[in-house]
Every structure is written in C-alpha cells, then in structure tokens.
Computed example of a mutant assay.
Amino acid sequence: MATRPVAVIGLGGMGSGMARALLDAGHQVTIYNRTAAKAQPLVQAGAVLAASAGDAGAGAPVVVLSLADEYAVEAVLFGEVVDRLAPGTTVVDTSTVSPSFAHNTAIRLAASGVRRVEACVIGNPAMARTGQLRVFAAGNESDVDGVRDVLGALSQEIRYLGPSGRAGTLKLAFNLLLGIQTAALAETVSFAESAGLDRELLLGALDNSGWRSPILSFRAEFMRRREYTPAGFRTVLMQKDLTLATEEAAVHGVALPLVAASARRFAEVISAGRGDEDAAVVAELVAKADPPSAKLIGEEESAA
C-alpha cells in the first residue's frame, strides 16, 4: 500500500494511539503536542517531532487533529496551523465539537483552499494504537475518499455519513449514552456498597450477566482497581461532551434531563480536582442523601 506524510497534532490517549497506528502502517508521521514529553515514545518509534503545530502541518498533505475542545481547535487550527497549510491539504478532525462549530470550521477552511473531513472515531486508546477504531466520516464524500488510506490505517470500519456536522452529532450521541451509563454504574456501586455488598462481588456478578456490555466492563475495570489513570476518557472531556449534547438538543427544542443530571455529576468530580482522571472516578464521589422519613409505609393513609 502506498503511504504518504501525515501530521498528527494533539497527543492525548487517542491522538498518540492514532499516530502509532499510522507509523505501523508505514506512513511518514510528523507529530506535535503542547507537552513535548508525551511525544518521546512516538519519536523513538520513528515519528518526527515538530517544534510547533504550524511546523507539523506545513508540507503534510493530511493533518489529523485530536484536540480537547472547540477552544483548542480554534486556537491551534486557526491560530497556528491554517496559514501554513498548502491549498488542497485535508484536515481530518477527530476532535469532538458541536455540529454548528464543525460546519463553520469547514466553511472557514474552504476559504483557504483546505478540505475538512470530520471523523467520529469510536473506540479507546488501546484500539487506536492497533488501528481497530471505527470511523464515521462526514464532509464532502470526495474528500473522505481522498483520505481513505489514512482512515484505513486507523480503523477496522469506515462509514460515510453525509454533510459536515453529522459525525459530530453521532459522536455526541455515543458519548451521551456513555456518560449516562458511567454515572449509572457509579450509582449502582454506591448503592450496593452502602448496603454492605462488596464492590468486587457486584462488578463480577454484573460482568457475568445479561447486563454486561463492553463499554461498562471497560469502566468497571477502573472502578474495580480504584485507579483512574491513565484515563481512557477524562472526566473533563466527558462533562464537556454531555454539555455540548444538552446545548445542541436545546437548539432543536429537545430536553435531555438524564444527560443534564449526569453532566452535573461529572462537574462535581471536576470541582473535586479529579477532572483529568477517567470518568469512572465518579464512582468515588458518593452523593449524600437526606435521612429517610421516620414514617412507616401506610402511616400517611391511616392518618388521613
């Protein structure tokens, strides 16, 4: 398979994993991360470390972004990178942003002669490292087809969704379900432990039942070990995505009360100083309930 230069900007868990998969597929990979120390394992594996985000993007026909939020995309892409990109460059943006931000970003890049492929990547850092993600892509279909070699190095499946914004919508849909499930599993643990049931027993029973799912098992392993670093999905990013989903739904006149409640729980984790730990750490934040009423069931009726 023919390979070509690819820049990867943003080396969190997913970005680092995708860079590794691209290297393993034979691509010439240039990397940049604000914290340079995170880049060293990739440099040892053959990547070239750029001095700046702009330097990383200059000369690369494909630039993969894996950034934390809209603020980071704005600051890095438009503040440092876009002016260094040659016309015809394709930016593959795997950052989770709102559909409206995605659509606006595509328009602004097009004005500079740069293509944008919006890539919703589903999986975890371990899957990213081995090229086993699932990629749902949006934008111009010809632009997606033009980077299938890069997307194929990252994934076991590529699906085209249609116009810009749809990949972001799908990613938020996945993540709101993940957030609710993670918060629900944390409350399941709190409920069981409050009644004297051992956490390990509970999680083991769930993992061998019809309630088991790969995503819950992944989060349950953090809770079982009570160790939440390195994070698979940082709490601060979970809270951000749930908030984005709530805001986007409101634009369409839809309320998401369960999502909003889960977002508040993760916000409490962040306030407790644990936002950089995996979102499963919410299991350690036990909400205190008001004391139950002393009345017995049926007292209300008999007093009437």
Rank of each mutant, 00 (worst) to 15 (best):
residue 105 T to H: 05
residue 54 G to P: 10
residue 62 V to W: 02
residue 27 H to G: 03
residue 32 Y to D: 05
residue 101 F to A: 15
residue 108 R to A: 15
residue 36 A to E: 13
residue 110 A to Q: 10
residue 19 A to L: 15
residue 39 A to P: 00
residue 84 R to Q: 08
residue 60 A to M: 12
residue 93 D to V: 00
residue 105 T to C: 09
residue 20 R to S: 06
residue 133 L to I: 10
residue 102 A to P: 02
residue 128 A to V: 02
residue 17 G to R: 15
residue 65 L to A: 04
residue 17 G to A: 04
residue 111 A to C: 12
residue 55 D to Q: 11
residue 17 G to Y: 11
residue 72 A to H: 15
residue 93 D to A: 00
residue 102 A to Q: 15
residue 105 T to M: 09
residue 47 A to M: 11
residue 59 G to E: 10
residue 81 V to I: 15
residue 53 A to K: 00
residue 70 E to W: 14
residue 71 Y to S: 10
residue 90 T to A: 05
residue 133 L to N: 08
residue 77 L to S: 03
residue 62 V to D: 15
residue 95 S to P: 02
residue 62 V to A: 14
residue 116 R to I: 14
residue 30 T to N: 08
residue 51 A to F: 02
residue 81 V to D: 13
residue 54 G to E: 13
residue 53 A to C: 09
residue 129 R to I: 07
residue 56 A to Y: 08
residue 113 G to F: 01
residue 75 A to Y: 12
residue 41 P to F: 13
residue 103 H to L: 12
residue 109 L to I: 13
residue 45 A to W: 12
residue 29 V to L: 07
residue 30 T to M: 11
residue 64 V to D: 15
residue 133 L to D: 01
residue 117 V to N: 05
residue 27 H to Y: 00
residue 125 P to C: 12
residue 98 S to K: 01
residue 131 G to D: 13
residue 32 Y to C: 12
residue 136 F to D: 05
residue 135 V to H: 04
residue 112 S to F: 09
residue 116 R to E: 03
residue 62 V to Y: 03
residue 33 N to E: 02
residue 76 V to D: 04
residue 121 V to M: 09
residue 119 A to K: 04
residue 124 N to D: 12
residue 122 I to E: 12
residue 95 S to M: 05
residue 101 F to P: 04
residue 66 S to I: 00
residue 26 G to Q: 07
residue 79 G to Y: 13
residue 57 G to C: 06
residue 105 T to G: 08
residue 133 L to W: 01
residue 77 L to N: 05
residue 42 L to S: 14
residue 116 R to A: 14
residue 47 A to H: 03
residue 46 G to N: 11
residue 37 A to F: 03
residue 26 G to N: 14
residue 105 T to V: 08
residue 39 A to N: 15
residue 47 A to F: 02
residue 27 H to M: 08
residue 66 S to Y: 02
residue 86 A to K: 08
residue 69 D to G: 01
residue 112 S to Y: 14
residue 116 R to S: 13
residue 30 T to V: 12
residue 78 F to S: 14
residue 62 V to I: 09
residue 106 A to K: 03
residue 34 R to Q: 06
residue 116 R to K: 04
residue 67 L to G: 14
